[in-house]
């Protein structure tokens, strides 16, 4: 077993465990913590995949911004495990069966079906900021601008929604 495979397996196992914990934990604040841990292990995967810039952005955006937002809302609303609504056991069983069947079907459908032609001379520079920046501002400049507009709209929408008694 090579080192990289070992790292992959450890990170993968960690992300699966943390995500399961995130799902099962009663306290939503703990859920957030476990989700952040899951994101960190996924960021590790990115590093392993030689996508360093992506890993950094991932940490900053997800762990740094989005999850903080979640935490902030949780704190604002003062939700804890006591306020957590209970789900019935029968429903949990049904949900487990559904999700499990989805997994089985997905794996069954994708198993052995993936044939990619890996190029002989892979470019190790692909995941670097320089390269990504060039692609982003040349080939993807229009979607990039549109993403900016999306952000603006989301920002306005979020402010509007969260504000009390908005006079339009």
């Amino acid at each position: 077993m090579s080192l990289s495979l070992a790292v992959f397996l450890i990170l993968g196992l960690a992300s699966v465990i943390f995500s399961l914990l995130m799902v099962f934990t009663k306290n939503p604040v703990h859920s957030v913590i476990f989700l952040i841990l899951t994101f960190f292990s996924i960021a590790g995967q990115y590093v392993l995949l030689n996508a360093q810039f992506l890993a950094v952005v991932h940490i900053i955006v997800y762990a740094g911004a989005i999850m903080v937002l979640f935490l902030f809302v949780l704190m604002l609303l003062n939700l804890n495990s006591a306020a957590e609504p209970k789900q019935s056991a029968r429903w949990k069983l049904g949900a487990a069966i559904a999700a499990g069947m989805l997994l089985v079907t997905l794996v069954g459908a994708l198993k052995g079906g993936i044939q990619i032609a890996v190029p002989e001379n892979t470019n190790p520079q692909v995941g670097l900021a320089q390269n990504l920046g060039r692609v982003l501002f040349t080939d993807f400049v229009v979607p990039f601008e549109i993403a900016g507009i999306l952000f603006l709209a989301a920002m306005v929408g979020a402010v509007l929604l969260a504000k009390r008694d908005v006079k339009l």
Binding site: A98, A99, M101, L102, T105, G108, A109
Partner: peptide, 20 residues
């Protein structure tokens, strides 16, 4: 909504099954 999602998942499963 969860009920709908469950139905959606079941539908997706069926779709994969019929496709593969």
């Amino acid at each position: 909504i969860e009920y709908y999602l469950l139905a959606m998942v079941a539908g997706a499963v069926l779709l994969f099954l019929t496709l593969h």
